[in-house]
Simulated assay, not measured.
Amino acid sequence: MTSAAESQRARFAALDPLLPPPSPLPPGVPLAAGGAAGTIAHVRFAAGSWQRLWSPAHLQILSAVLPREAGAGMSALLSAWRERIGRADAEPDSSCVLTWPSRDVVVARALLDHGLAPQLALAVRAPAGGEAYSVPGVLVRESTGGDLEEIVALRFEELHYTSFVGHGVVRPGAKALLAEEVRRGLQFGGRVWIAEEEGVTVGIVTSGKRSPIPGDSLAGRLPPGEWGYLGTLAVTAAARGRGIGRALTSVAHDELFSPSSRGTFVSYNPANPLSPVFWHRQGYRPLWTTWAASPAAALR
């Protein structure tokens, strides 16, 4: 292990006890500057794919190993990245992204100075059941096959909202893609909880269980073991502010809790005026933050 890798391992352990040891740099175009080393992976999502609802078509993903002076190392690496982008054509439907521990404020300063903005937070909650909470006149129940149309409608409303404050993109065929994703999630063990008032669906939350395995998106993000997760939480605009989201998550947390669980996790957009406050009140705190910038801005 190089001295920079050893330094990064020690920094991560000191920053947050839930951070797994840093993974080796993944394959990609090598980049080095200021004692820092990185790789840039290019990911392209096919037209009409599910991923394009939540991402630009083309991602440049930076992974980094930083020296002891982490802020200066990241700044140097971002400057080198900017120069490389400047030599290439900047695609309009693309983004430069980097995921980094949320508590590393020294590196966050470098990211902000270079024009990146926090786009997504992976937040965790200690293992616990949900505190009993209900809203008068609102029934929370597990979905059935007859709820598909209402679930998709709320998922689409959430996507539309996210397109203003986050990384959602309302593309042609979005509702059909959402319907297929809901079916697939239910088929592979996910659940959807429905909040219903006078027979009308006013909110949903999706949930399930996952364990980090090599090669998946959670590898290197969460410690090994079983984790519960809450996916999309959506409440109709007219029903917000009445505790319906809290009632939904309370039921989902109860269903996900087990003595062997490591906890639960969610992802939310830090710029969303509703999500961070809500999830922090439910006991979540950010572990990783994904930062992004448009290549057209050339990472100033």
Rank of each mutant, 00 (worst) to 15 (best):
S260E: 15
R262L: 13
A234G: 08
P101R: 10
S267P: 01
S217E: 14
I194D: 00
G173H: 09
T289Y: 06
I213Q: 15
G35P: 00
G215F: 04
S163T: 11
L19P: 01
R9F: 08
G137P: 00
G208R: 06
E180P: 07
A237V: 14
A123L: 11
G199Q: 06
L62Q: 07
R191Y: 12
P214Q: 06
R246C: 06
L122I: 12
R210K: 15
S95A: 15
L116H: 02
G228Y: 05
T236P: 10
V140P: 05
T39C: 02
A292L: 00
L299A: 14
D93H: 09
D16T: 00
E158S: 11
P30S: 03
T290P: 01
G73S: 04
T162M: 14
W100F: 11
Q119M: 15
L177Y: 03
M1P: 10
T99A: 15
T162P: 00
L233T: 11
S7A: 14
P273T: 05
L120M: 08
R44D: 14
G199K: 06
S79L: 11
L139H: 11
S250A: 15
S75M: 06
E180C: 09
L18Y: 12
A296N: 05
R184E: 14
R109N: 07
S3Y: 12
D93S: 11
A176K: 14
W193D: 06
E83F: 05
R109P: 07
L98P: 06
P20D: 05
G129F: 00
F257N: 07
R240N: 01
R44N: 10
V205Y: 08
E83G: 12
L233A: 02
V138D: 01
A80V: 08
T39M: 06
P21W: 02
A64L: 09
W193H: 15
L66P: 03
G28F: 02
A57N: 03
W81F: 13
L59T: 08
E158K: 14
R240T: 05
G199F: 02
L111N: 03
A247L: 10
W288L: 01
P295K: 09
W279Q: 04
A292M: 05
L18K: 04
E149S: 14
I204P: 04
V152Q: 01
H42N: 11
K175I: 06
T2D: 15
A37E: 14
S267L: 15
H160Y: 08
R9G: 12
V124F: 02
D16E: 04
R87M: 13
L15Q: 05
R44I: 09
L116A: 12
L59D: 07
V202Q: 11
L53S: 03
L19D: 01
D113T: 11
H167L: 14
L98K: 02
G146S: 05
G166E: 07
N272K: 04
S258W: 07
